[in-house]
């Protein structure tokens, strides 16, 4: 978060706390997309994300007086967004249990890679992939365990610093880093499987 954003955020929150309702509109403009997209990426459901956004905006309005600056205001907003999204997920049936370990790299006894690693990093710009890749990524992220998913969304998608993610989730910086690394390994594996399959389909066509 840039210094100006932080300053603006603090100014608006103090104005709202002092009873200046107009500041609320600006707070809405500043946060509604962040709230919606985090909630959508957590729930993958437009209706749920809409509910969560409404709920969070209402909470900001009603509870802004109780906000005490123990953390950044936006950290508080992210936290209530995550909690409200989790409440939505609670009633939902879990699709399937996906083991994180299956997606981690496999080594032999001396610590060398056992799998054949294809380098598909140069092929992702092909127009053939664009649509499919989006779907594959969304599906892979959906399969991430919650702990890793939320860290990944805040840090890699929203671009917050590791320190801020730690503040929001009340985790140590090393814990944030380790979850993020696991999330990236998991997603890399899912994308690799997809690109491998794509190549064997191409081979068969030949």
């Amino acid at each position: 978060m840039s210094a100006e954003t932080k300053e603006l955020e603090e100014k608006l929150v103090k104005e709202l706390q002092a009873g200046k309702i107009e500041a609320f509109d600006e707070i809405v403009n500043l946060f509604q997309r962040k709230i919606y997209s985090l909630s959508f990426n957590l729930t993958r459901n437009q209706m749920d994300a809409q509910d969560v956004t409404q709920e969070v905006l209402l909470t900001i309005f009603k509870k802004v007086d109780t906000f005490q600056w123990k953390s950044a205001f936006s950290s508080w907003v992210y936290r209530i967004t995550i909690n409200a999204s989790y409440m939505k997920l609670r009633g939902r049936k879990k699709d399937q249990y996906v083991s994180m370990d299956d997606a981690l790299p496999v080594f032999n006894g001396s610590g060398y890679q056992k799998e054949k690693i294809q380098d598909w990093s140069e092929q992702t710009d092909s127009p053939l992939f664009v649509n499919e890749t989006k779907e594959i990524i969304e599906k892979a992220v959906e399969q991430l365990p919650e702990k890793e998913k939320v860290v990944f969304l805040l840090r890699d998608v929203d671009g917050l610093s590791t320190e801020r993610v730690g503040e929001i989730l009340e985790l140590s910086v090393p814990a944030v880093k380790s979850r993020l690394h696991r999330a990236r390994l998991f997603l890399r594996k899912k994308l690799s499987i997809y690109f491998d399959e794509y190549h064997s389909r191409q081979e068969q066509k030949k």
Binding site: D119, S121, I137, D156, R188
Partner: peptide, 21 residues
């Protein structure tokens, strides 16, 4: 293999960010 791993790890992060944000 580790170079391939490094490249695909970096690309994964970039692709996911571009797709989801």
């Amino acid at each position: 293999p580790c170079i391939a791993f490094l490249n695909t790890y970096k690309t994964t992060t970039r692709l996911c960010r571009e797709t989801l944000n």
